[in-house]
Design a protein around this nucleic acid. Structure first.
Length: 500
RNA sequence: GGCCGGGUAGCUCAGUGGUAGAGCAGCGGACUUUUAAUCCGUGGGUCGCGGGUUCAAUCCCCGCCCCGGUCACCA
């Protein structure tokens, strides 16, 4: 492969740039007096007929990148894009000054130009600017992907997202939806009295989730630091501080595998709601998702892969133990008692019969969760709240009043993946201390994802945290769902790639 | 990390143990309402990188790099 600098097309483009300079054109001017964006022009006039346009004689002044050039000698067409909307420009020799027509002849596909002219419709009824002047705005020195096939190579699309955005309108659409999703969530929560905050992303104890952190180091303080795996413990400190409704939308970092559903840095919404419990959160979640879908894509159902998913409340609700028990019963063709999942030995035996791999340190709760994940998770296509988790896998959740082995927690599954995780918050400092100690035992037993001790968090709880419920929603996954994207990398502008 | 698939022109892709192909893009020409414009002519490649086998390797063999899918781990 020839280096870009040497290739023919680049030589040609540089030559055109030099020719512009010889004409006295500054190929990189400082500004352009933009009348309106292409999107605004099209938005305002796309419904008007040719007769109406001719009668109104609308002159417009806009700018964009040239996506195609069709030449016919003395009459030519450009297609300009403002990154979102496209508009055709008619370049007719007798309508332009000699200088502007010379500029036109030096244009390459990809260059940025500004035009001024009257709007009309061509014989084929396309809304078009009849250019009366042309301004050169910036040069595209490298050849762009071609117009017909576009850019399909996924590696290039992720590594050089700007190219993807230039030539693939669908890519731009995904990030428009993403922006609306985040705006809609902010609006939803702030109108309900939630305060948006930012908490540390660099933490000396990476807590709030069971995950492996990235490690780093602060030179001046000479201390190790971790990139956060969750904002949870800081947001709950804020509820201790009296911020009764609080949320954060920000990045989490987890030093784990990469897949179509996992990027090492990902965006989470976490919110905490004093005086509420996990049941209140189920209702709020349904309302929020339906509201966000309406605002972001104006729909109450989405097509995702082979499925049509309804986001109309209420969502299905399924107890985790019952789901695991039912799936195991179906798999083995016999009726299994829920009590089997309550003791370590019988649960382990069941896992063995189901060929679900377990490890020596796992108790009944972890085994039950493993059975659920292996047998049920992928089948939860329509939105489903899976509720009542084993205490063993939920070190920060509040136990059910009548069942200390179970916590008030749910996960929301859609399209076979986990979209949200929520629970009634454990606010008893003594119980929290015990849970951390149990996590330390698991860590000592080799579980690298077990939660670390956070004594300051215990102290905060000792000052009294109101009863509260909290929830995390994966923004990337929500955007995947709402845009039909099958890979998380399609909804993250610059996903992590191995350097070349 | 395991397994499977891929890496050839700017882009999308064929292809072969014997000097590397197409479409689009580019360049030259014709054309004053085209839209994948059309027509005529034409340039363009370290076939991912490194070794090996061979008279000869883009092709066969070995190693490596990058990407995708999948499994494992996780949200």
């Amino acid at each position: 492969m020839t280096t870009a600098e040497e290739s023919d097309q680049v030589v040609q483009r540089r030559a055109n740039l030099d020719e512009l300079r010889k004409l006295g054109v500054n190929p990189y001017p400082h500004r352009f007096d933009l009348g309106e964006s292409i999107e605004a022009v099209v938005g305002a006039h796309s419904s008007k007929t040719g007769e109406v346009l001719d009668a109104e004689a609308i002159t417009t002044r806009t700018a964009g990148r040239i996506l195609t050039i069709r030449t016919f000698g003395k009459a030519n067409f450009l297609v300009l894009s403002d990154g979102k909307t496209r508009l055709q420009v008619y370049i007719r020799q007798d309508a332009l000054s000699e200088r502007d027509f010379k500029i036109f002849k030096l244009l390459d596909f990809g260059d940025w130009v500004g035009v001024e002219g009257r709007l009309f419709r061509t014989k084929t009824n396309e809304l078009t600017i009849w250019a009366s002047s042309l301004e050169f705005l910036a040069k595209c020195l490298l050849p762009l992907p071609e117009k017909w096939h576009g850019l399909t190579d996924v590696e290039t699309r992720y590594r050089q997202r700007y190219l993807d955005l230039i030539v693939n309108p669908d890519s731009r659409r995904v990030f428009e939806v993403r922006s609306r999703v985040v705006s809609a969530i902010r609006e939803f929560l702030t109108t309900r009295g939630f305060l948006e905050v930012e908490t540390p992303m660099m933490q000396s104890i990476a807590g709030g989730a069971l995950a492996r952190p990235f490690t780093t180091h602060h030179n001046a303080l000479d201390i190790p630091l971790y990139m956060r795996v969750a904002p949870e413990l800081f947001l709950k400190r804020l509820t201790v501080g009296g911020i009764e409704r609080v949320f954060e939308i920000n990045r989490n970092f987890r030093n784990e595998g990469i897949s179509t559903q996992h990027n090492p840095e990902f965006t989470m919404l976490e919110f905490y709601w004093a005086y509420a419990d996990y049941r209140d959160l189920m209702t709020l979640s349904e309302t929020l998702l339906a509201d966000v879908a309406q605002k972001a894509i104006a729909a109450d159902e989405v097509v995702y892969g082979d499925h049509t998913i309804s986001l109309r409340p209420p969502f299905r609700r399924l107890s985790l133990r019952e789901a695991a028990r039912d799936a195991a019963s179906r798999r083995l063709g016999e009726s299994i008692d829920l009590e089997v999942l309550r003791s370590r030995d019988s649960a382990a035996a069941l896992a063995g019969r189901l060929a679900v791999p377990i490890e020596p340190g796992m108790g009944a709760g972890k085994i039950t969760a493993a059975i659920f994940e292996a047998l049920c998770e992928g089948d939860l296509i329509q939105p489903t709240f899976v509720y009542d988790f084993p205490t063993e896998v939920s070190p920060l959740s509040k136990q059910k009043a009548d069942d200390p082995d179970t916590v008030e927690r749910f996960e929301l599954y859609v399209a076979g993946f986990e979209l949200a995780n929520a629970f009634s918050e454990l606010n008893d400092p003594v119980e929290q201390q015990h849970r951390f100690e149990e996590q330390l035992r698991q860590r000592a037993g080799g579980d690298e994802e077990a939660h670390a001790m956070d004594s300051d968090y215990i102290r905060a709880l000792e000052f009294g945290m109101p009863p509260a419920a909290g929830e995390g929603i994966g923004i990337d996954r929500l955007v995947m769902l709402l845009t039909g994207s099958l890979s998380i990398r399609d909804v993250i502008l610059f996903p992590l790639m191995r350097p070349k």
